[in-house]
Amino acid sequence: MRENLGYEKEIVTIILYTSCFLMVVAVFLVVFFYFSRKKIIQKELEKRDLEIYLNKEQLHAVIITQEDERKRIAQDLHDDISSKLNIVSLNAHLLSAPNLTEAETKEITENIINLTAKALENSRKIAHNLLPPVFEKFGLNAGIEELCEEFESSKSVNVNYTNELDLDDKDIDRHLHVFRILQELMNNSLRHGKATQIWIAFKNVNGINTCNYEDNGVGFDSKKADNQKGLGMKNIDSRISFLNGTINFTAEIGSGFAVVFTF
């Protein structure tokens, strides 16, 4: 009888401890889930804030680029066209002066003709820089060929361009982005990289249009934060995101700069 009672007591204790153990663990699990949910939601919010911040940043970059571009155009207009037209107008006034000899009239007219020709040439250049007519008329391939020629003729750099893609002229809006990216990259290679060789290749990799760009310039330390997101790079990034593409930079000091992007 006594032994039996002890045994029963034992069973009850065991049941009590077991249920206590399970209950406390259950409580802890519930608390765990509660806090986990909270943490995940908070993380999600942080992510969204970051996204908004990045969007703002991008918008900022767009505005700044726009302003810079305006400034550049204004300067070009002022320096190359307005100044020349000023002198033309002065000369025209001189023409209307009385008692001019034949030789003077001839000299002034020649001046005017020269200056207007220069102003015309300059305005053509400015328009060309803004949107190359070859690109608009004959598409990306021709546009890049012309760009390469321009770089080779004026800036002592050797450009190798190959194209294995069949580019559709209907995509001209998208191609403009590609054109601008290459323009920016080439400018960077010259200005910052002091490159003497540039390779550009369009390829079709697994059905995706891919562009390999490479130069032999001084390169830069891609791990340094200042180098990662200059205004130009931001511009390229947002163009790539317009194209739903991807972009990969590899750069090291002394071994040039390479970019692969898809569009």
């Binding site: 401890y17 206590c20 153990f21 406390v24 663990v25 802890f28 699990l29 765990f32 995940i40 993380k43």
Partner: peptide
Amino acid sequence: TITSLLTVVFALIHFYNMLT
């Protein structure tokens, strides 16, 4: 009971930290 509970609690806290 006590030792196992505490061990489970420590492990759960670690799980919580690992979430993110």
